[in-house]
Design a binder for these strands. Structure first.
Length: 1168
RNA sequence: GGGCUUGUAGCUCAGGUGGUUAGAGCGCUACACUGAUAAUGUAGAGGUCCCUGGUUCGAGUCCAGGCAGGCCCA
């Protein structure tokens, strides 16, 4: 059987489609799993993509990474099942549907029923599934597409419910609130999407207040008082206030904390209150100090002082910009110094405002990482009920919110849902926060709530500065009224309860890159807040919690069975008329009356579950909490829900938890990576994955984000069909580490294609061409024993073993880039450009000798192993190469059950390195040969002596026997490569070596430190005698600046980079000289070689096959005849000529031109 | 504003634990080679290693502070 031969250039796209078809036809993917039955498993989780958009080139990147390690583990013999999955819920799908229908959220339930709306979402979400499946196949991503998990399916949702119930039973699920944009006029919360509508942000003029918060004197604040008293004119008297600015004065009565930046610098300023003229000290950020204070006398001329220094009148306390002129900086503190200080409540009980729970923990200075010195005072007033930052900072610092009880005793913020202060708010009770009811504001003495508060504070001496200020503020797109940031009910998972465990277990996860795990993810865990599960939407997993109206009783449902049973109770209590989820005789009854054994057709989405009412133990009706849950819960639940666990498949779940490996984009860190981890820890007290790779973004070639709008997006389908999946994958992996961003440039794929795949293909073609000519077929047995192989073969096989070790190591360490680069360097630099190049003659010369057989077998082994090593990254080409290389061996391999028995490379077991074949000394001397050859080429170039002209010798100075021995063993290779007769060594005894020394700075530095400079300079001046002394006696004493230093041989590097009278080239410690003397014989041989070259070209130009024999007649020429006389048999052999003659007259032939010759020639094919 | 990350030749990237003359591939220029030929070899041009300070005898590498790009979060 022949090795298949292909035309140049190979169509890599075609290789992809051909191999893909073959895989499908032979079920190779399935076999790659089934043939590993009973073997240890490698568990991989597929992060579900959403099929509501077309896949992009970045998906090829992400999925290549996943595929590589699954394939690699399969090659190691592990069983790697890969269940695909689809993420189907969530806002992007809702938005897409709304856009297509031309509706808004407002219209749901009005213009379109929830039922129809959700039906539409269900259809939309899988719209691009076919394209995704197509890409999955074409790029060679092996994942099970036939039985994927789908997050909208009833069994999946049911699993989510079961998990939620588990969390509920552990007390980890609770109802609280979050701060969200809220429109009191419309009575509804607004999504960030609604807030991003054009026109919602408008310029408004508000009353703003810099409020004074009076510091309590205690241990924490003593340093402030001490500083104030040291400089104050009011010893032991002055009050200290912290200044905080707000554009929403109505939130001040709800203040419970003040936030500072840890590293921000603050001034303590001795000054006066501009309204009450009270002498006080205030705290304000240094960077904002000049906003509030000005030196009245600054500048040569001002409105108050003339250039001659005369006063133009009495200094005002406040200048025209409202800055205070009377001040003295009494101290400087950082935010850290201030944290923990207590202050007095602004609107306390004494002023008629209500007490609240946890008050003793309130009114403290806390840290806020959001605090800036852009505007205000560098200190932020915190009211946890009216700001998201406020809420979070307060929660982290354990500061309570100011909540008051309504008539029913239910706690709420000081503003009700219509936008009015609650009645308990003293003099301001019942006032509108903003004008939400459209009341008349035109009256002369009309005051807004903000203004009333400002007036009151001026009187109290707690307002430092009140002014109108224009800024942008979001407005409700429906009512045009300003939005409030307002606490809205939400369900939470108490992740903070397991925070320490989350952190602890995270440390056991192998993150690639490690910095994402310790940095981005680690920090996120350190600053963890509870997971807000609630979403006020329609298309998603419904929260399975039913509650009584007053919230006193509730139930969390964990399965459809349970729900059905509860409904039966409700029916019995006449709360429900019938049970839509009822089971009769073991079958589920559908809406149309049909019976189903499974729950697969039951729809648990809204609106159906909304129509379910349950009965509480006390007989009250219970209503479903209308929220949906965060879609991230869906995807984080996939380790369980993909098996419908915990409702069934307990064994299967156990076998597949946790994952050995997952990979997604780094943007998933707080998404999927977190939800997997959180659920894993809370439900199983375990990590959910052991190894995780967070890959970077795919940018365009200029480093910009790809987008359809900019037109710089790369189409994955055309890229794969044009360049082939392998080159595309290889480029993406080899070009940059997966976790770095990739600047995607199609030119890079072309380069990979040419340089790597082209070279590998050429190497294969070369092998196939000659093996077929010789009728050679490699076998797994009956090979030339390793001990009989020549240097060159043993060398490349040694390199090959080293490569196996290296590449396995990189794959094991989840570093595919280094694996790809190592394979690439081996193929191009070592295998092709050295081993094959130097072995060429072995392949085309003569009969199938043992050496020729060895050449074939060595190359065959290299190619097969390379195919295996590259298979995870370039699965199609590797398969192609494997099939071509081993097709002829299969029958015997199958019969004898050898490593090459599998029909596909992806079913083989990755070869183990045979370390006994690694010969470091051999690798080293081959490198010497490569470098010496390179130097010799360089010398030829300088002397204008082409390689075809043989030369007598090169001279290599050697300073030790090892080098001499090493180079000696590769002398033949060097001679052949650079066309010289032999290598001559020059050692010390020759007496012609000129040595020089170079200081060994590393060693000298450690030894002499600051003296290194002079010592180094002295070493560079060493004489030949001194060098010789150092070498012979092992030490040398030198005197520098009156001090004596004793040098050891290790302190210097001795080299010979000059041979007097010779042209030399050096590369580090290596030096080569070339003898350029030309003898008559060398000249003749040169001519003979030229002749061979021209005749070979002529053969080729005449279209002869490699194996054709010829007869040649040359025009008479004395020097040529002399050359042919001496080298005739060599020439005839090279050009496969049966005859080589001279004739006085040549007619009808061509003319060979070389050097100074013009020779007529006639060439004819000799039959037979 | 915070966290993480990147910055080295025209482009893409290497450069353990500090060591003086910073490398590779591609691209460019020139020459050579040629039964692998859209391959290969040699040589050349091309660098303030983002900037500023610091530590050190010595910094691309370590420290501090900036600048610029990216991602995530606010």
């Amino acid at each position: 059987m022949n090795y298949p031969e292909y035309k140049q250039p190979l169509n890599y796209g075609q290789v992809g489609t051909d191999i893909l078809a073959w895989w499908k036809q032979n079920g190779i993917f399935e076999k790659s799993v089934s043939t590993r039955d009973g073997q240890p498993t490698f568990v991989f989780y597929e992060g579900p993509p959403s099929a509501n958009g077309a896949p992009g080139i970045h998906h090829v990147m992400a999925r290549t990474v996943k595929d590589i390690f699954c394939r690699y583990q399969t090659l190691l013999g592990k069983q790697v099942s890969r269940k695909g999955g689809w993420d189907t819920h969530g806002l992007p799908i809702e938005l897409q549907v709304e856009k297509e229908l031309g509706i808004t959220k407002e219209d749901i339930g009005k213009k379109i029923s929830i039922e129809d709306y959700n039906q539409r979402c269900r259809e939309t979400v899988m719209r691009f599934k076919a394209q995704w499946d197509d890409l999955t196949e074409k790029m060679g991503y092996w994942v099970d597409l036939d039985d994927p998990y789908i997050t909208f399916e009833p069994e999946y949702i049911e699993s989510c419910w079961a998990l939620l119930k588990k969390l509920y039973d552990k007390g980890l699920l609770y109802k609280g609130y979050t701060i969200q944009p809220y429109s009191p006029a419309a009575g509804t919360g607004l999504s960030s999407h609604e807030l991003n509508q054009p026109g919602t942000y408008r310029d408004v003029k508000d009353t703003t207040i810099v409020a004074q918060f009076k510091v309590q004197r205690d241990e924490k604040s003593e340093k402030l008082f001490a500083a104030a008293e040291q400089v104050s004119r009011r010893p032991n008297g002055g009050a200290i206030y912290i200044l905080a600015w707000t554009t929403t004065p109505w939130t001040l009565p709800a203040n419970t904390a003040l936030a500072v930046g840890k590293n921000i610098v603050y001034y303590l300023v001795d000054t006066v209150n501009p309204y009450t003229k009270e002498e006080i000290s205030v705290v304000v950020a240094k960077a904002l100090f000049e906003k509030y204070f000005v030196h009245a006398l600054e500048g040569k001329e001002s409105e108050y002082v003339s250039s001659t220094g005369e006063s133009k009148g009495e200094l005002p306390l406040v200048d025209k910009k409202g800055r205070i002129t009377k001040w003295f900086v009494a101290g400087e503190f950082t935010g850290s110094d201030l944290i923990g200080i207590r202050y007095e409540r602004l609107f306390g009980h004494d002023k008629g405002f209500p007490a609240f729970e946890g008050e003793e923990r309130a009114f403290r200075v806390i840290n806020g990482d959001f605090v800036t010195t852009e505007d205000g005072t560098g200190i932020v007033h915190i009211s946890p009920t009216f700001g998201a930052d406020d809420f979070r900072a307060a929660a982290l610092a354990d500061v309570p919110a100011l909540l008051v009880a309504d008539d029913e005793g239910k706690l709420g913020p000081i503003v009700d849902r219509t936008g009015r202060y609650v009645t308990q708010m003293g003099e301001f009770g019942g006032r509108w926060v903003k004008n939400y009811d459209g009341h008349d504001q035109s009256g002369a003495d009309y005051k807004t709530l903000d203004e009333s508060i400002a007036i009151r504070m001026k009187g109290d001496g707690t307002a430092f500065k009140v002014e109108k200020y224009e800024h942008t503020y979001p407005h409700c797109w429906r009512t045009d009224k300003p939005v409030l940031y307002y606490p809205l009910d939400s369900w939470f998972i108490k992740t903070t309860a397991v925070k320490d465990r989350l952190i602890e277990l995270n440390k056991t996860i192998n993150w690639q890159p490690a910095s994402t795990g310790s940095g981005r993810f680690g920090n996120w865990l350190e600053n963890l807040v509870d997971w807000n599960l609630s979403r006020s939407r329609y298309w998603g997993t419904p929260l399975p919690i039913w509650r009584t109206q007053d919230g006193s009783e509730e139930i969390c449902i964990g399965s459809i069975e349970e729900l059905s049973a509860e409904i039966d109770k409700a029916v019995a209590a006449e709360i429900m008329t019938h049970n839509p989820y009822r089971k009769v005789d073991g079958n589920w009854v559908m809406a149309d009356g049909s019976a189903e054994e499974s729950t697969k057709k039951i729809d648990l989405h809204r609106p159906y579950v909304d129509d379910i009412f349950l009965v509480s133990p006390s007989g009250q009706a219970m209503y479903r909490e209308t929220d949906l849950i965060d879609v991230w819960f869906d995807s984080g639940a996939m380790p369980y829900a993909q098996w419908h666990y915990p409702l069934e498949n307990g064994e299967k779940f156990k076998q597949n938890f946790p994952a050995d490996f997952i990979a997604e984009g780094v943007d998933q860190t707080r998404g999927w990576f977190f939800t997997l981890h959180a659920l894993g820890v809370m439900l199983e007290d375990s990590v959910a994955y052991k190894n995780v790779m967070a890959n970077g973004l795919v940018l365009d070639k200029n480093g910009n984000k790809m987008s359809k709008r900019l037109g710089n997006a790369i189409d994955p389908f055309s890229t794969i069909s044009q360049y082939g999946p392998d080159a595309t994958r290889w480029y993406m992996i080899a070009n940059a580490q997966p976790w770095d961003n990739l600047k995607f440039d199609l030119a890079g794929i072309t380069e990979v294609q040419r340089r790597f795949f082209g070279t590998l293909f050429n190497t294969y073609s070369f092998y196939a061409l000659y093996a077929n000519l010789d009728g050679f077929q490699a076998r797994e047995f009956d090979r030339v024993p390793h001990s009989d192989l020549g240097e060159l073969d043993r060398w490349i096989l040694s390199k090959l073993q080293s490569l196996i070790l290296e590449v396995r190591g990189y794959y094991d360490a989840y570093d595919p880039t280094k694996a790809a680069r190592a394979i690439q360097d081996f193929v191009t630099d070592q295998l092709s450009n050295w081993h094959v190049r130097l072995s060429r003659r072995r392949f085309w010369k003569g009969e199938l000798t043992q050496d020729k057989k060895a050449a074939y077998e060595t190359l065959q082994e290299c190619l097969v192993v390379v195919a295996q090593l590259m298979a995870p990254i370039a699965p199609f080409f590797a398969e192609w190469l494997y099939q071509n290389m081993t097709g002829g061996m299969r029958e015997e391999a199958v019969a004898k059950s050898t490593p090459l028995a599998p029909e596909s490379i992806h079913l083989t077991l990755l070869v183990e390195a045979n370390e006994t074949r690694i010969d470091k000394a051999l690798e080293e001397r081959m490198e010497l040969a490569q470098r010496i050859s390179s130097l010799t080429h360089s010398l030829r170039k300088k002397s204008v002596l082409k390689v075809r002209q043989p030369l007598q010798r090169i001279l290599v100075p050697v300073l030790n026997d090892t080098t001499r021995e090493q180079v000696g063993k590769v002398e033949d290779l060097i001679c052949a490569e650079v066309n010289v007769k032999h290598v001559e060594f020059l050692d010390d005894t020759s007496g012609v070596l000129v040595k020089s020394v170079k200081p060994n700075f590393k060693r000298l530095g450690q030894q002499y430190g600051p003296k290194l400079k002079v010592v180094g300079a002295r070493i560079q001046q060493m004489t030949a005698e001194e060098i010789s002394t150092l070498e012979k006696t092992g030490q040398l004493a030198v005197e520098i600046e009156g001090e004596t230093y004793t040098l050891a041989p290790d302190d210097v590097e001795i080299r010979t980079d000059d041979l007097p009278g010779w042209l030399v080239a050096t590369d580090g410690p290596l030096t080569v000289a070339l003898d350029v003397t030309l003898t008559e014989e060398l000249r003749q041989e040169g001519v003979a070689r030229e002749l061979v070259n021209r005749l070979q070209n002529l053969r080729k130009d005449s279209g002869l096959e490699v194996q054709d024999k010829i007869r040649v007649t040359l025009g008479q020429q004395p020097e040529l005849e002399a050359a042919v006389q001496s080298f005739g048999s060599y020439i005839r052999e090279e050009i496969q000529a049966l005859a080589l003659d001279f004739a006085p007259e040549i007619s009808g032939g061509s003319v060979l031109e070389f050097d100074e010759y013009n020779v007529p020639v006639q060439l004819e094919v000799a039959n037979g």
